[in-house]
Amino acid sequence: MKNTVVVPYTGTPEQENELKEWLIENKDMQGLTMPALQKAQEIFGYLPRAAQTIISEHTGVSLEELYGIATFYSMFRLYPVGDYKISVCMGTACYVKNSQNILDKLEVLLKIKEGETTPDGKFSLESCRCIGACGLAPVIMINEDVYGRLTGDELEGILAKY
């Protein structure tokens, strides 16, 4: 269950200050933790360790608890979105057409796990629910491009285009 990749921190001091200022402004808010994580994701685009550490210092909520929340809810990202965001459809139709195999193959090719981003920041990999192209199952999307009726063998070629 260890994290497999380390993506360089992309945050800036300005972003850190924005988060700190927001935390000071809202320090009396009840149930501050969730809004704080949402705000941090809005500022940084994801929840880097630095942002979670800042929230922990300001709220007294332990880093472990924040990390537990961040990994529980699928809306939180622990990695920045890559230049190319790959979404593997795991909706019912794609799933029965073995989209798990597509996801597994992509994990091997990109050397990252679902939810992670390649260290160079190029690709991020995630699963999604039905994208409305069931007729093409199994389907993946890379940014706005849709690739369907995949067997897995074509993935290497598809990735090479980017």
Binding site: M1, R49, S62, E65, Y67, G68, F72
Partner: peptide, 20 residues
């Protein structure tokens, strides 16, 4: 101290420390 806690969800849930 709070250095361990549940991480992730469903089948993937496990007890560990922040950022694995």
């Amino acid at each position: 101290v709070a250095v361990i806690g549940p991480t992730k969800r469903g089948y993937d849930t496990h007890i560990g420390s922040a950022f694995g």
